[in-house]
Simulated scan of single mutants.
Amino acid sequence: MEVGSPLSIQVVSDGRAGIENQALGLAEAIQRLVPADISIKRIRWRPMFDRLPSALKTEAMLDPGSDAPFPSPTEPWPDLWIATGRATLPLSVAVRQRSGGRTFVVQTQDPRSNPSRFDMVVAPAHDGLSGDAVFEIIGSPHRITPDRIAAAAVAFAERLDPLPHPRVAVLIGGRSAAFDLTPAHAIGLADDIAAAIAAAGGSLMLTFSRRTPSEARRIMTERLSILPGLIWDETGENPLFAFLQSADHILVTEDSANMATEAASTGKPVRILPMVPRKPSGKFARLHADLEAHGATRPFDGDLTPWTYVPLNETARAARAVLEAMAAR
């Protein structure tokens, strides 16, 4: 990095929003602290090579539709490389070697390999990762900021502003390795949510994730449509950020570290909705214990009494740690 020039940051992922937003959120948090230019690279491997161990993958195995991850011989290496997800691991290791140390390499999430292969790993505390290169945070980095959600709410103001208080944002996940949302559970969950909002005289703002099973989505939409509010039907812009801004309370299913962490960054009361466990998941139990200890979350029990806490701001804390580590090196 030349003196007086902006920090050059390259964000790398497989392009899935939930994955990319972790690296991009950290990059944007750094950009709020120092002048920086951010570029985004989306990569994927050819199907025949995708499941190979990272150590065996080479750049030639990337899908032709991928962005070129490394600069051309005439281009400079970025000052900072921030990558997220399994697909990026061999590229992160390679850029650290090829750049000759000119690029500071940060990996978010647990890379499930030796953290010393990277300059820094910004890892969720609930993963239990340790090492000199590891910086632990509660949950995952994300892009939620007060300014961002306030700006997003403008486009939905006409539909959300007339809704009665308390306004309850409900963020529904779905099937994963650890959890499921069965039709029977969707019925019970919807009825419990409807009863709580009706008792409070409030309104509903509901959005689903890509992992929500279609039958669970249908059931919950049908049963919750009796409430005043807005249920996103997946047409047009996702109102998630607007919901977070407009909400008095947030309900989020326990299966998503990203959704829970984002909700806790708002400073609004967050209640955790139970899912159907598919297998024991100690890491999710640790995450929810951390969020509850911070004061951000409580289990959903039908009560919508508010409380206050200091908004969770782990992305900014990680951003400061990255800059300090770069300066120290």
Rank of each mutant, 00 (worst) to 15 (best):
G139E: 02
V154W: 03
G131H: 08
A155S: 11
I138Y: 02
P146K: 11
P162N: 07
I137Y: 01
H142C: 01
L160N: 12
A157E: 15
V154K: 08
F156D: 12
V134A: 09
F156M: 08
E136C: 11
L160P: 13
I138N: 06
V134D: 08
D147F: 03
T145R: 06
F156A: 13
D132C: 04
T145H: 04
R143L: 09
P141T: 00
I149W: 10
A152Y: 04
R143Y: 02
F135Y: 15
R148A: 15
E158C: 10
F135M: 01
P162I: 10
P146F: 03
I144S: 03
R148T: 09
E136K: 12
I149R: 11
R148N: 08
S130E: 15
D132G: 09
A153R: 07
I149G: 06
P141W: 00
P162C: 07
L160E: 06
D147H: 09
S130T: 15
I144H: 04
V134L: 12
G139T: 05
A150L: 06
S140E: 11
G131D: 09
P141G: 01
A155Y: 01
R159D: 13
A152G: 04
F135C: 05
P146V: 04
I149F: 06
A150P: 03
A157W: 13
P162V: 09
A151T: 10
D161N: 10
A152H: 04
A152W: 03
P146Y: 03
V154C: 05
T145E: 02
R143E: 07
A133M: 08
R159S: 14
V134Y: 05
G131Y: 10
A153W: 04
A150Q: 08
R159T: 14
P146W: 03
I149K: 05
A133P: 08
F135S: 05
G131V: 09
V154T: 13
V154I: 13
G131M: 11
E158T: 15
F156G: 07
H142K: 03
F156I: 12
S130C: 09
A153P: 03
S130K: 12
H142D: 01
S140W: 01
P162H: 10
F135A: 04
I144E: 05
A152S: 09
V154S: 05
S130A: 15
A133E: 15
A157K: 15
F156T: 07
R159M: 10
A133D: 12
H142T: 02
H142M: 02
D147W: 04
H142R: 02
S130P: 05
I144K: 00
F135V: 12
A151K: 10
E136T: 13
S140Y: 04
G131T: 10
A157G: 14
S130D: 14
P141I: 00
P141V: 00
R148Y: 08
V134N: 10
A133N: 14
I149H: 02
L160D: 06
A150W: 00
I137P: 05
